[in-house]
Amino acid sequence: MCTDDIPRPYRPASLASQGGTHRGDFAPAPVMLEVPIYDNHTHFDFGDSPVELTAALDAAQAVGIAGAVQVGCDLESSRFTVEAVDADPRLLGAVAIHPNDAPELAQQGSLDDALVQIDAMAAHPRIRAIGETGLDYFRTGEEGVAAQHHSFREHLDMAKRRDLALQIHCRDAHVDVLNILAQVGSPSRLVFHCFSGDAELARICNENGWYMSFSGTVTFKNAKNLREALVVADPALILAETDAPFLTPHPFRGRPNASYMLPYTVQSMGQILGREVNELSLAIRQNTEAVYGSWAD
């Protein structure tokens, strides 16, 4: 597949206010995975230029990505997620209010109403996770911590009540995330999306049966801590994701990410672990289905 065959992300959106993704041409397609896997976390509703959702999934499927978990971060993207999982059987979904949005909604007095709407969307049979939720202290100051904690606890309650998986976004807040999980308990299936911890956090995840989803960041030259964590991680708890259009793997940093690029990350993971790619892909596929169930249901 040539570069021209790779579709743009699904819907136009300015990413500058969100930290953005680098603009530019998409990278060439990777070598196809012989054992198909699923992209554990992606955002088809972010991007620079419109394209058919089907075309984006076709490009991914052509390199061995059988499907994906489309993830909502606010009410708009969560509504998109519900529509998307109805539109294409290669998608399952997750819905939530992102921790960075919780303080603003709380200030407006609308956080609890938004959480009620997320809970209603989570009743859809192809919404298999609550997420992405958690804590993020990188962009939110102390004044927003209480709202983030409240929102995180409410999302945890949703996941447990509905027996859904939960995808955690955690940035500069691992201690508080672990404290809240210890206080209220975790759902039966919990995923650290875009795992950003070290080997010690990986050991904690192993002890608790929590899944660790590795993204393109594991390929970054300065990400020694992630590679050490990957080596420590229980193979039965490893997932893979793009977080597209963000976190494009090396050597294509500076170009937008997309689900079709996930094989680059998986191939790097295999090298780090000293595992054959087909063997690793089979494990990732089985782990992903253990978290979300079958895409065929």
Rank of each mutant, 00 (worst) to 15 (best):
V232D: 02
S196P: 07
K221S: 14
C194P: 01
I238C: 07
K221N: 12
Y211E: 00
L237C: 06
R189L: 03
P249E: 02
A229K: 13
F220Q: 10
I204W: 12
R203P: 00
T242E: 04
R227Y: 02
G216L: 15
P235C: 08
I238T: 10
A229W: 03
F246H: 05
G209P: 10
N257I: 14
W210R: 09
L247M: 14
A199G: 00
D243V: 13
G209Q: 13
R255F: 01
S213Q: 10
M212D: 02
S213F: 06
S188Y: 00
A240N: 10
L247N: 04
N222R: 15
F252P: 05
S213E: 03
W210S: 00
K224A: 14
V232Q: 14
E241S: 07
E241F: 09
P245Y: 02
F195A: 05
P245M: 04
L247A: 03
G254Y: 04
F252G: 02
A223M: 07
L226K: 08
L262I: 04
F195K: 11
A258F: 07
F192G: 04
S215Q: 11
A233P: 12
N225T: 09
A240H: 08
A240G: 13
I204F: 07
E207D: 15
A223W: 03
C194V: 08
A233I: 13
T219D: 04
E200G: 02
N225L: 09
I238W: 05
I204C: 01
